[in-house]
Simulated scan of single mutants.
Amino acid sequence: MEITVNQQNYPISETCSVAQLLAEVLQIPVQGIAVAINQTIISKAEWPERLLRDGDRLTVIKATQGG
């Protein structure tokens, strides 16, 4: 199965949740980020249960400070 994260393709297992993707595949800290799947924001509470599907397009946005 393949998904796209910020316009980069990733092969993943069939049973990968959003939380697993962030921790195990992308290895990024979950503090201060937002995730959209197919242009729909997914709340942080849903990340452990929301399983990814083949062809999903994720956008991961990291909050930054400054002005």
Rank of each mutant, 00 (worst) to 15 (best):
C16M: 15
C16A: 09
C16H: 05
S17Q: 12
S17G: 11
S17A: 07
S17C: 12
S17P: 09
S17M: 11
S17V: 07
S17Y: 03
S17F: 02
S17D: 06
S17T: 15
V18G: 01
V18E: 00
V18K: 02
V18R: 02
V18N: 02
A19W: 00
A19H: 11
A19T: 10
A19E: 10
Q20F: 03
Q20S: 12
Q20V: 04
L21R: 01
L21N: 00
L21A: 01
L21M: 02
L21G: 00
L21I: 03
L21E: 00
L21P: 03
L21C: 02
L22Q: 01
L22R: 01
L22I: 12
L22V: 06
L22E: 01
A23M: 10
A23E: 11
E24V: 12
E24A: 13
E24S: 09
E24N: 15
V25A: 00
V25T: 08
L26K: 07
L26E: 03
L26M: 08
L26V: 09
L26F: 06
L26P: 03
Q27H: 11
Q27T: 13
Q27W: 05
Q27P: 02
Q27V: 13
I28K: 06
I28Q: 04
I28W: 06
I28M: 11
P29M: 06
P29V: 03
P29S: 10
P29L: 06
P29G: 08
V30F: 02
Q31H: 11
Q31A: 15
Q31C: 06
Q31V: 14
Q31T: 08
G32S: 08
G32M: 08
G32T: 07
G32W: 09
G32R: 12
G32Q: 11
G32V: 06
G32Y: 12
I33H: 05
I33E: 04
I33C: 06
I33D: 04
I33R: 03
I33N: 03
A34W: 09
A34P: 06
A34K: 10
A34M: 07
A34Y: 15
A34C: 11
A34T: 08
V35K: 04
V35A: 07
V35N: 01
V35E: 01
V35R: 02
A36R: 08
A36W: 09
A36E: 15
A36D: 09
I37Y: 07
I37M: 04
I37F: 04
I37R: 01
I37A: 04
N38L: 09
N38M: 13
N38R: 13
N38A: 11
N38T: 04
N38Q: 13
N38I: 08
Q39E: 13
Q39I: 06
Q39G: 01
T40A: 05
T40K: 11
T40M: 10
T40Y: 07
T40C: 13
T40D: 10
T40E: 14
I41N: 05
I41A: 15
I41F: 14
I41L: 15
I41W: 14
I42L: 12
I42C: 09
I42A: 10
I42K: 14
S43K: 10
S43Y: 08
S43M: 10
S43Q: 12
S43D: 13
K44S: 09
K44E: 13
K44N: 10
K44A: 07
A45Q: 12
A45I: 12
A45R: 12
A45K: 13
A45V: 14
E46V: 05
E46Q: 15
E46S: 15
E46H: 15
E46T: 11
E46N: 14
W47G: 02
W47L: 04
W47V: 01
W47A: 02
